[in-house]
Structures are given as C-alpha cells and as structure tokens.
Design a binder for these strands. Structure first.
Length: 874
RNA sequence: GGGCGCGUAGCUCAGCGGGAGAGCACCCGCCUUACAAGCGGGAGGUCGCUGGUUCGAAACCAGCCGCGCCCACCA
C-alpha cells in the first residue's frame, strides 16, 4: 500500500449515485481490470454470460442474472483468481427475423421480394444499427465483463464451431433427416422444437361423428373435425368387445366417399369417448405413429398456412373456417351424434407469435438425443455437475431422460444454414468447417435451404466462445466454465443442451462445474410482471432514480437460490438508503480521522469496544464466505446489511464518538485505526454487490487504487473475542433498558437524568460506565440524588434514577409488572423442562445447560424486578 | 394426466429438531453536531388444518384443504 499514490479526495457531503457511477466504470475498463489473461498462473474462474437476444434490451430479469454473476466474478477477482466474465449475444433466429420482417412490412415489402441474400444482408444491417442495445445498458449496471472477448453466435468463429459439431454429429449418425410429424407454426412458416411450443388450456368443441352406415357404422370423437378429410382409418382397442367384429372391415368416410379400414391398436383408450379414434396420420403425431404400425397412408390435406387443400368444397378454407363448415355439413347428414361445448383441452402455441401450432408431416433434420441426453443426465447424477439448489436435479432428470429427438431445422433465413448439399444424382454431402462445397448450382448441386434452431448454436456457447474447435489458450484455461448462472426457466431449453454438446464436443468434460439457478423477478406481491398488468419494472429507470448500486442490491437481496425474486420501488429506495448510510458512516469516519495507514493494533492494545467490533467482523467474514460459496447471495446481503447498519453504525460509531472526542489521545488513535479497518473490510465485502459506492468510499478512505483489484478479506482469528462480545452484549442491554424506560415515561431524549449504576463491576463492565452514561444520557448522581425509580436490567445490574416529578409511578408499576410476568413465564417453562426426567436424560448436555442458564437469569430478573417494584413510591 | 414446489407478523420472505425472525408498512417520541434517505422506543403471529414420530415439532412422517409452476401426442 505504501507505493500507491494517495488518491484520497474529499467526499461529497451528500450521496448522489449518478455522480459516482459512470466515471468509475469507464476508469475500470480503461485500467483493464476486467480483462482476463489466459497465461497467468492464477487459478481460473470463468462465467460466460447467458447471451441475450440481439433484439433485446435490458429488462429486470437480465439485471438480476447479471447482478448475481457480477457479484460472483468480482469476489473471485478480489480473491486473486484469474477471472473471465465473457459477454456476447445470441442471433435469436425467429425473434430477429420477425423484427426485420415487421420493418419490411411497414415498407410494404416481404422478405421474398428481397430474396434470401438481400434479406440476410438487411438483418446484418439492422444488427449493426439497432441490435445489441443491451450491451451499452450493461455498462450502466456495472457488469465487469471482458469486453475484448465479446462474441456473437453468428460471428465467424462461432459459425465454424457450428459447422464442426454438425459435421461430427452427422458423421456419428447423431444427426439425421426424416419425414416426421413436427410442430409447425402456420404464421412463422417454420418447424418448431418441442420447447418452442407452449401449451394452454383452450376452449374447443368435442364433436362425435358417425362414420359408415348401419351395421358397420362407428362413432368417433374429435376436436378437429376438419382433419377428417385426411382420415385413413379408424382405430379401436384390440380387446374392445364392442368393436371386435368390425376390425378389418371398412367404413365409408363421410363427405368424401372414401372407404377406410378399422384397425386395432393398443394405444387407443377404450374408456375415452366411444372408444374409437379417427386416424389422420398426416396431421396428428399419435395417428402418425399408429399409422406407421399399420401401414396407413398419410394424407396431407392442409398447406403450410393451414389452409385446406383437399379437393371439394372445403378447398381454400382456413382450418378455422373449415372446421364449422364441415361440422355443419355432417350435421346436415345427421352424422353428428353429440356435441360437447365448451370442451377444454390443451393446445400448443408458437412461443414466438402464439399462433396455434399445426402438427405437420414434413422432411426435417433431427438430433438423435438419446445418447447425448443420457450423458447429460449422468454428469449430474454422478456429481460432476452440481445444480444449485439441488432440488432442480429431479426436474432436470425427468426432462433429459424423456427427451424426444430434437428437430433442428427451421424454414427461416436468419441463422446458420444447414451445411448439407444435395447432388444431381441424389447425393447428400455434409460439409464441415473450412471445407469446400462438393459442387455448384451449374453442376446441379444445391445447399439445404433451412437454417438451424437458434438453440443449436447457443448449446455450444461455453466452449465456442473460447475458440473451439481450435485448441486455444482460452479454451484450455477457462473450460470447463466455473459456474453457469441462469434462470430456472431455461434449465431445459439451454442448460441441458449445453450439457449434451459440451460433453460430446469436449471429450466427456461437462461445460461447467456448477449451475446456479435463480428465479424470476416478480412484483412486491409475488405477481408475475406483465405489460398488461402494468407492474413491469424498468431497471434503467431505477438506475436513473436510485442508482445502479441500489438496483443491484435490491435484486441481490432477494436472490434466494432457485426462488423467485419479488421487488418493488420502495425496496429499491431502501437499498438506496443503505448506500446512503454507508456514505454517511464513511464521511463521519473521515471527518474524525479514521485511517487505514499503519499496523492494526493487536487485540491486547485495544479497548473492549474495539475488540468487540473486530471480533464481530471476523465472524462476518467467515459467514459471508460460507454464504457466497453456497450461492446464497440474499444471505450475504442480509448479513452485511445488518452488520453495517446495526453493529457498525448504530453501535460502534456511537460508542466511538465519546472516545474520539475524549481526552485519551492514544485510545482515540487506536479507535481511528480500528474504525478505518472495519470500514475498509466492510466495503470490500460489499463491493461485489454494490461496486460503485464502495469504490468511491474506499478510495476516499484508504487512498488505494481500486477496490476492484483489492484483496478479499480473510478472517484473523487473533481478533476473535468472546469476552468482549459478551461484555458489549451486557452494555447494549443496559443502554436499551434505560432507553426503553425513558421512552415509556415520555422523557425527552435531551432531558438529562441523574442515575446511579450498580453491579457494573460484578458484570465486568465497570470501565464502560462513561460510555453507558453517554449513550443513555445519564448524569452522575449529585449531592441531592434521590432514587425514585429502579431499573432491573440483567445479571446483577441495576439502574437507580432520580426522576423526581418526571415520571408516572403507575405506568412504571405496570411496566415492571409486565416484565415480571414475562420473566415468570420464562422461569416456569424452564422449570417444566428441567423437571422432566426424560428431557434431562435425552437432551444434549449443551441444551440442558442452556435451559439452566435461562432459568437462573429469569429467577434473577424476578428478584430484581420485585425489588424495583418495592422501591417505587406508593 | 404426470412431476415439482409453496402455505410463518398487514405485504414479501428467511428459519427447516431445542428460547418465533428480517425488510417494508404500522403506532409513539425525537431535526441528539455522519445520515429525517435519519435516531430511539413499541405493537403485531394457536408458524394452513388433522393426526403421528420425539423428552421436545414451525421444522420430520401421513392425510386433508388452499395456492403456484413445469412437463404432457388421450382423440
């Protein structure tokens, strides 16, 4: 510390967040504090940011996610780790394409008017102009990311990673192309994976329709009457007696005149409806599967916009127009046997545009997930990856263990194009990174038109950002990542996929050691934030009004692992108040000559008050470290909040005041040093959560270069001091009792009262009498002292007060009686326990001892309160 | 339909086998020379219900009631 120039500047009188935040951030970046050095010999600590969408701007969920990450990273940096927090963005296939298409629509053109190449160029142009606003906003929050390593899922390096892993999976037979029923969005005109589909309970109509005539007629129920045009069978359960005679025969499909077979399949539930199901293999995943077993043809009767294409009067109708039309036609024929409305059933919707998904038979690319998902499950099962909190493992397993093959092709233009080429003679060639296409269009070769699911490239994020597939210094150093911090909502979407691809690409090494999950930000009533409800918090608005530190502290304070985080403006104001408290405490310290220069006196040289606060500090350091290690950020905040506010500000500073102002220069000097030390350490501990205000205060206090690179506190056991803590506990109790008396009696705080303190010596705190008098505002007894009230405090301590004419005797009597009742109840409880032989026999010695102590204390209280009551004038 | 989780002070939540806690809100009194974005004091809870295990249960077990979330190809 000696050779660092003294940067101490006078602290402004009032805390104004805006004055201290922005300039510090730019200074930190300029100083290179956030840059990681892959060649250093420090232990590595790496977090890659969950890449926000390039279309996005900072919302309060990001603010929570980033606050947690920044806190973890900043602490590790202070602990001497080589820390890398890597920023970047996701190209967000559908979302981004939709944004630009909407823009085009406003200009009256479609992407097809532009053509693929021009459209993609246009998206890049949009990205350059208005994409990534979130990155600038991250600076306002104070995110200590390494800007020199910023990545984008579509940049050159990451695209190479995509090609490389695609080729590898393809060659391993883990990527295949097949005609399957997939989730199709008729508005976005693309396939969707299972997780891009949201299910909601929708109101529909269950119509029972009679197929066939006379003896061979059979009733089926459906919510999607329009699909009957594509029916190619009716299925019943093999053991269903009602229909056994019909299996193998045919019925006439109404409206079409086609005859379709009746088949028997185990999958049919005989208890549902009539027990007979219409089979539409081209438009229902179940029916497709059953159809495969029975060799049923799949008849596609709708196009990609869900418009009916079947010949006949329904051709050209949208699915929602065709449905009632067909029901009406069937009713006219007397074939509608029953109609149940409303009928609630789950319907899938596109997670992007909320359009009802249409199951559609089409040729798509899939990842065979079984072996990958098993490995992803095992990595958690065998403890190589830890989920925090651990209860999420159950949900994780149930998902990875039951995953369907992953549809990765999207009929979009914005994204990584599938690197497969088709030749003139039916050749199919997968082209890896740095490889040339097998031929050109002149030779009859063409590349697959589709792009990859956005999550395909994000699944590579933990290693593609570090240079994979090349063997880079960053990759060697920072893979696996230390922690993945993210919301539980994308545990399946993203975390499971990073696990699958990380394990696959990196020879069985999982992408991170720990997944620290947090919840969703909610409003102060625990309600989900939504625009329509008007309870959405804009974090930048809070940064503006309360400061980035207050915003961060509010979020961190609610960040219980895996749990949702309620926030409100009032709480943010409370966090701002806390920062202000720190500001004022430091200001007071500086005004009173607090210092961090020179050796901290050893415990033997210090007063009990100084030893007490230092002892408390050691406990806090240990506690905070444990809480940090357990990702208990909310507890870290709570611990430090109370230590700072209660112990340091409310007690230590008040206790220090008389010492600092007193005549004992040596004692005052020691306290100045201790005060400087305590604030120094406290600011270090708080820095991960509230970096700006702590930086401002700490540099003013210590003259140090920056808290960002200052050392993280470690506990010093030589300052642990149970005796001092016990002494101060008694002192606090005495002062509190006197204050309570004064408040009860309506004595003005400024009103001096003469008092005699008894029993301090026996309690070992005789030396603290001046302090007690100062805090409780008690004058020494004069010549005419007359005790008119006696306070029974604790142990053997009593306070006799001369309150002639100032107190209400009746009120005092009531108060004491109440206290005595409490003590008596306490004593009775303890006695009951101790009188129970089973308790004494079975309870641990420490517990029994504690109860004995409580009983003794209660009995002493009863005695002293009795004496005090007796001493009251009649 | 399957799975997970939650019901503790007015609100939001900690506590998860041995004296019911915090923040905010509330009441009383204070501009006490770091801070009214503050200080001191206080009130407020059969810890969802019912049983069980235990010397001892807010905590562990079972059932019930009430919420919430995730997953899901029963038409």
């Amino acid at each position: 510390m000696t050779d660092i120039p003294d940067q101490r500047a006078p602290l402004a009188a009032a805390y104004q967040p805006a004055d201290v935040e922005q300039s510090h951030y730019e200074r930190w970046v300029a100083a290179g504090y956030f840059g990681a050095d892959a060649e250093s010999d420090r232990p590595p600590f790496c977090i890659v940011i969950p890449p926000p969408n390039v279309t996005g701007s900072l919302h309060v969920g990001h603010a929570l996610d980033h606050t947690i990450q920044d806190a973890l990273v900043r602490r590790r940096r202070m602990q001497g780790f080589e820390t890398l927090w890597l920023p970047g963005m996701d190209h967000a296939g559908i979302a981004t394409q939709n944004v630009v298409e909407r823009q085009l629509a406003a200009e009256g053109v479609s992407r097809h008017d532009l053509g693929r190449e021009t459209f993609v160029e246009r998206v890049w142009q949009w990205k350059a102009e208005s994409g990534g606003t979130i990155l600038g906003q991250m600076r306002r929050l104070g995110d200590s990311v390494d800007w020199s390593r910023e990545r984008f899922t579509m940049d050159e390096g990451l695209s190479r990673a995509v090609l490389t892993i695609f080729k590898r999976l393809y060659d391993d037979g883990l990527i295949y192309r097949a005609e399957r029923i997939i989730n199709w969005c008729p508005r976005c005109l693309t396939a969707l994976s299972d997780i891009e589909v949201e299910h909601t309970e929708d109101e529909g109509e269950l119509v029972s329709i009679r197929y066939g005539e006379g003896e061979t007629s059979i009733v089926v129920a459906t919510t999607r009457a329009e699909t009957m045009l594509g029916d190619t069978a009716v299925a019943v359960h093999p053991s269903d007696e009602r229909y056994r005679h019909l299996v193998g025969r045919e019925v006439e499909l109404p409206l079409t005149g086609r005859r379709i077979p009746i088949v028997a399949d185990e999958h049919v539930d005989p208890a549902f409806g009539s027990g007979a199901v219409k089979m539409t293999p081209a438009h229902d995943p179940n029916d497709f599967e059953i159809g495969q077993r029975h060799g049923l043809p799949a008849l596609t009767i709708m196009d990609e916009r869900a418009v009916v294409t079947a010949h006949g009067p329904y051709q050209g109708l949208d699915r929602y127009e065709a449905r009632p039309a067909i029901v009406a036609a069937l009713r006219a024929q007397g074939r509608v046997v029953a109609q149940r409305r409303p009928y609630l059933h789950a319907v899938g919707h596109c997670s992007r545009c909320k359009t009802a998904v249409e199951p559609r038979l089409s040729l798509q690319w899939f990842v065979k997930v079984e072996p990958l998902a098993r490995a992803a499950g095992d990595a958690v099962r065998d403890g190589r990856v830890r989920l925090e909190p651990a209860d999420f493992a159950k949900r994780y397993f149930s998902w990875v263990d039951n995953m369907h093959d992953w549809c990765i092709s999207r009929q979009l233009w914005w994204g990584h194009r599938i690197p497969v080429w088709y030749g003139p003679d039916g050749e199919v060639v997968c082209v890896g990174a740095d490889e040339e296409p097998p031929g050109d269009s002149a030779g009859g070769w063409r590349q697959d038109e589709d792009v990859l699911d956005t999550w395909f490239s994000s699944a590579l994020w933990p290693f593609s950002t570090l240079g994979w597939p090349d063997d880079t210094a960053d990759l060697r150093r920072f893979y696996p990542n230390s922690v993945m911090v993210t919301g539980y909502d994308i545990l399946f979407f993203w975390v499971a996929r990073m696990m699958m691809f990380g394990l696959y690409a990196m020879d069985g090494v999982p992408p991170f050691d720990v997944v620290a999950l947090h919840g969703m930000v909610r409003d102060q009533y625990g309600k989900k934030m939504s625009k329509s409800f008007g309870n959405v918090v804009d974090p930048l608005d809070w940064v503006e009004r309360f400061g980035a530190d207050a915003t961060r502290f509010t979020l961190a304070r609610g960040a219980n692992p895996g749990a949702d985080v309620p926030v409100s403006e009032e709480w943010c104001a409370g966090s701002r108040n806390f920062c202000n408290k720190l500001w004022n405490a430091t200001r007071f310290a500086l005004l009173n000559g607090a210092t961090t220069a020179g050796e901290l006196p050893s415990a033997e040289e210090l007063s009990a008050v100084d030893r007490w606060v230092l002892s408390r500090l050691q406990h806090i350091i240990v506690e905070v470290d444990e809480q940090f290690d357990a990702y208990e950020l909310a507890k870290v905040c709570d611990t430090l909040y109370h230590f700072a506010w209660d112990d340091v500000c409310d007690w230590y500073l008040e206790l220090a005041k008389p010492v600092l102002a007193g005549g004992d220069a040596a004692a005052a000097q020691a306290t100045r040093r201790v005060l400087g030390h305590v604030l120094d350490q406290l600011l270090r501990l708080l820095h991960p959560m509230i970096p700006f205000v702590t930086e401002e205060l700490w540099t003013a206090l210590t003259g140090g270069e920056s808290l960002v690179v200052a050392a993280w506190p470690g506990p010093d056991k030589s300052y642990l001091d149970d005796a001092a803590e016990a002494e101060l506990a008694v002192l606090q109790r005495v002062v509190t009792e006197v204050r309570r008396f004064r408040s009860d009696q309506g004595l003005k705080p400024g009103q001096r009262v003469a008092a005699r303190l008894t029993g301090l010596g026996r309690a070992g705190i005789g030396g603290h009498e001046p302090l007690i008098r100062a805090l409780a505002r008690l004058d020494p007894p004069g010549d005419d002292f007359a005790a008119t009230a006696t306070l029974a405090v604790t142990g053997h301590i009593g306070v006799e007060l001369d309150t002639r004419g100032a107190i209400d005797i009746a009120a005092e009597r009531t108060r004491l009686a109440k206290d005595r009742a409490v003590a008596e109840r306490e004593a009775a409880q303890c006695r009951a326990k101790l009188d129970n032989p089973a308790f004494v026999r079975n309870a641990p010695e420490a517990v029994v001892g504690k109860i004995r102590q409580r009983l003794a204390a209660a009995e002493a209280d009863i005695t002293r309160i009795g004496a005090a009551l007796d001493a009251l004038p009649a």
